[in-house]
Design a binder for these strands. Structure first.
Lengths: 221, 221
DNA sequence: CGTGATCTTGAGGGAATTCAATGTCGGTGG
DNA sequence: CCACCGACATTGAATTCCCTCAAGATCACG
C-alpha cells in the first residue's frame, strides 16, 4: 500500500510539465507524492493501478524470497518511469531508497488516452521495451564474475548520472549487493580492489570517481 | 540475416489460423519459414523488422560476449511469440535449437493494425509485458545456487510442456548451462545429484521425469 | 561524545569452475 | 550388420572465487 498518503480517487490533480525526457503526453496527468527513505511505494502482489515517474530521489524495486534473500530488480533515478509490470499484480515491491518525490499516474487514464491516441500507445510500447532492455542488461550482468558485475554496475550508474565521471551512489552497499546477486562483503572488497587498481577513486563510501573507464570496461566483460 | 530463404517483399502471404493461444489477430498475417538445427533466424545488431511465432521446434535467443561466453536470453517453444525487442536493433541473436518452423510477421503490418485497432495495441502491450515477466523470473533464477537454478529450470520447462511431469528437453546441456549462467559440468553434476536424491529420473540424457515436485520446489529457492 | 548503522578487512570453508579423462549415443560407411 | 567416428554427456581431481563468520573502522546523528 501507499504508506505516505492515501491517493485521491481521481488522480488527475496536478498538471505536470514534462520537460525532463521526451516521453510526451503520458506524464502530463498525475499526482506528485513524497516518500521518506525506505518507504514503500507499492507492494508485491498488490493490484497494478498506477505508473510512476521519479521526480527526485531514487527508487528500488525488489522481491524477497521465502528464505529472506532479497533481489533488487532495478534502480530508478530522477526522470525514470517505473511500474511497467506484467499482469494485474505487482511481481515486485517498490521502495524509496532515499527521500524521494514520485509522480503517480493512474493507469486507466493512460490506457484511455492510448486507446484514442496511437502516439500515446506507441510511447507506452517504447517505454515498456526500454524496460525490457534494462532487464536484458541486468541479466548480462548477473552471469559475470564479481569484478565484472561491480565494474559494470559503476559504468551503468555513471551513464545515468549527469556528470559522467564522478557521482554519488544513492544506495547502500547492501542494495548494490542485492542488485548484483553478491554479498555486501564482496561488493566492498571489489570496490577496494578497483581502487587499488587505480580504476576508480573513493573519496567517501558513497562517492565514486571513475579514473580508468577503459580498465573498467575490460573488467566488466 | 535469414539464412533459410529470402523473405518476400510483402510478408503478407499465408493466412495463418491462430488456434494455439488466444493472442488474437496479430498472428493472422505472416509467412511460415523453416529453419534447420542451429540456423540463424536473426542476428544481434540487425534491424528489427519482424515478430515471430514458433510453430514447431524450439528457438533460443542469445548474446556472445567479447571473450566468447554465450548467454542465452530465452527459449521459445511451439506457440510462443518472440522478437519483442527494444530499439531498432536486435540486442540478441535468435537461432533454431532443433529443426523448427517459425511464423514471420512484419512489424510494420502489426503497428499499422495497432494504430487503427486499440485491441491489437493492447495485445501488443500484453505480449511485451509477458516477455518482461519472463525476464524477471530469469533474473530470479540467476541469483540462486546451481541446484536452485537447475531445479527452477526443470520446473519452468515442465510447466511449459504439454505433459507436466515428463518431457523431452529440446536443448543441449551447453544450452542449459548458458541459460543458467553455469558450466556444462555443473549442470550435468546437478542433474545426477537430483536423480540420486530421487527428485527426478533421467531415462535418457534429454528425457526428464519429475519424481518429486515438492523437493524440486524447495530446492528451487 | 556515545550510539547505532554502514562499511571495510581478515581468516577459513564451501560451492562452482577448470582441466582432464572416460562414457554414451546416433549416424555413416565399410 | 556392426564397427567406427564425432558430438554430447558424465565423472573425477585440483583450484579458484565467493561466501560465511567475525572483528574492527568510519560515519551520521542525537
Amino acid at each position: 500500500m501507499l504508506t505516505q498518503a492515501s491517493l485521491p480517487n481521481s488522480a488527475i490533480k496536478t498538471r505536470h510539465t514534462g520537460t525532463e525526457s521526451g516521453v510526451g503526453a503520458i506524464e502530463m496527468i498525475g499526482t506528485v507524492m513524497s516518500f521518506v527513505r525506505n518507504a514503500e511505494i507499492y507492494g508485491e502482489g498488490e493490484q497494478v493501478e498506477f505508473l510512476y515517474k521519479v521526480i527526485s530521489g531514487t527508487v528500488r524495486t525488489y522481491k524477497v524470497l521465502a528464505d529472506g534473500r532479497r533481489q533488487i530488480g532495478a534502480f530508478y533515478l530522477a526522470g525514470d518511469l517505473f511500474g511497467f509490470e506484467a499482469g494485474d499484480e505487482h511481481g515486485f515491491s517498490a521502495e524509496a531508497v532515499g527521500d524521494s518525490k514520485v509522480l503517480v499516474i493512474k493507469r486507466s487514464a493512460i490506457f484511455a488516452l492510448a486507446a484514442r491516441n496511437s502516439d500515446v500507445a506507441s510511447q507506452l510500447w517504447n517505454l515498456t521495451t526500454r524496460e525490457l532492455r534494462r532487464m536484458q542488461s541486468h541479466i548480462m550482468l548477473l552471469i559475470k564474475s564479481a569484478h565484472e558485475r561491480v565494474a559494470g554496475f559503476l559504468l551503468e550508474m555513471a551513464d545515468r548520472s549527469p556528470a559522467s565521471n564522478e557521482f554519488e551512489l544513492p544506495m547502500s552497499r547492501q542494495d548494490i549487493a542485492d542488485y548484483l546477486g553478491l554479498t555486501i562483503e564482496t561488493v566492498s572488497r571489489t570496490l577496494t580492489s578497483l581502487e587499488n587498481a587505480a580504476a576508480i577513486a573513493l573519496p567517501s563510501a558513497r562517492r565514486i570517481v571513475l579514473r580508468d573507464r577503459v580498465a573498467l570496461g575490460k573488467l566488466s566483460g
